[in-house]
């Protein structure tokens, strides 16, 4: 049985949720979409379970990219593993839980890559904020410049890194290995080939982050526009918080999945061009299989597109900062649902 045939049987996914290459019809695709959204939303309600959702998104990215490169394979599922691997049938245990294990593995790889790239600025934000207000509380105003200066340096780092982050993750997903996150020359070449798509992804990410900042504002001002909130019993308040968390998790899952897939499409377009332009650099990669003659991009134009991406990316720290002013939580400096873990917190 070929991978496409097994995919057509819906293997490698929860029955009824299994996405396939050539589904039976619109209704079936809609049901699959709703099923995936339901599972993903529930998983995105917690930091630990959101790792599985991140893994699933990363596998979907890798699948989309490799599919474009011509390496047909089964669509990743939530729980079930493939019926065969390396041309041989898989065991019962692998079939029963292989998808979940693969999601956890991919999630860990993706999270490690994302944290490696984002902690240099998110840790600066966390430390600058904490130390800045600690300093204010203790009236050490003679050192008051330190907190804001460190924070702004973190913002500068973030604007440098954030535009490249989606393509970095797509590269990791396509290669299915952590080391791919640090292949700077390959990343640079794929970013150059991506051109206008880099700022487009940055803009979309910032726009998708708006509802999360707005949610912080709505939650913080709730006692003003919904005074009954103050009178809720602890159980009712917990239930309401659970409902809000679920809504935000659904939003997170949809937005993050959409952004991941767009990044994968961009990667699938740019990486073969980059591989065609510098075959030696891309030897042994998935993209090399689909390498096609590419044109060297103007360095100036690449810089302009990247600069525009940095400008758009600047919106994300601004939204994070606004959200933290409204309702501070230390982990929100480290985990933004559209940047690292798909968990709205």
């Amino acid at each position: 049985m070929t991978p496409r045939q097994s995919a057509a049987r819906g293997e490698g996914a929860i029955a009824g949720l299994a996405p396939t290459h050539h589904g039976p019809g619109r209704l079936s695709r809609l049901a699959r979409f709703l099923g995936n959204a339901a599972v993903g939303a529930v998983l995105c309600t917690g930091p630990v379970t959101s790792l599985i959702a991140l893994g699933w998104m990363t596998r979907r990215q890798g699948h989309l990219a490799r599919d474009r490169f011509g390496a047909a394979e089964e669509m990743p599922g939530w729980l079930l593993g493939p019926h065969e691997a390396n041309g041989r049938p898989t065991g019962r245990q692998a079939r029963a839980l292989g998808g979940l294990a693969a999601n956890i593995r991919a999630g860990l790889i993706a999270l490690a890559a994302l944290l490696a790239w984002t902690l240099p600025f998110t840790l600066l934000w966390l430390g600058a904020w904490w130390a800045g207000w600690e300093n204010s509380f203790n009236k050490g105003y003679e050192q008051a410049f330190v907190g804001p200066s460190v924070f702004l340096f973190g913002v500068l780092l973030a604007t440098l890194i954030l535009p490249a982050l989606p393509l970095m993750l797509a590269h990791v997903a396509a290669e299915d290995r952590l080391a791919a996150a640090f292949e700077l020359r390959r990343l640079r070449s794929v970013v150059a080939q991506a051109g206008w798509r880099v700022p487009a992804l940055g803009l979309l990410t910032t726009l998708c982050a708006l509802p999360f900042a707005a949610a912080r504002g709505l939650i913080t001002t709730a006692t003003d526009w919904a005074p009954w909130v103050e009178d809720l019993s602890p159980d009712d308040a917990a239930a309401l918080k659970g409902q809000i968390a679920l809504i935000l998790a659904a939003l997170t899952f949809l937005a993050a999945t959409g952004l991941h897939l767009l990044a994968a499409r961009t990667y699938a377009t740019a990486a073969p061009r980059a591989a065609g332009l510098k075959p030696g650099l891309w030897d042994g990669t998935q993209a090399a299989e689909a390498a096609r003659p590419g044109q060297a991009r103007s360095r100036l134009l690449s810089l302009i597109w990247y600069g525009l991406g940095m400008a758009f990316a600047l919106g994300l720290p601004a939204l994070i900062l606004a959200g933290q002013f409204l309702d501070h939580a230390w982990w929100r400096w480290l985990f933004h649902p559209l940047v690292t873990l798909p968990w709205p917190g």
Binding site: T220, A222, D224, A237
Partner: peptide, 20 residues
């Protein structure tokens, strides 16, 4: 100050809450 059970830091005070 506020007693907002939905917020991480429930102690703001500009939102006209009963507790404020």
């Amino acid at each position: 100050r506020d007693a907002n059970p939905l917020a991480e830091v429930p102690f703001q005070h500009h939102f006209n809450s009963r507790s404020a």
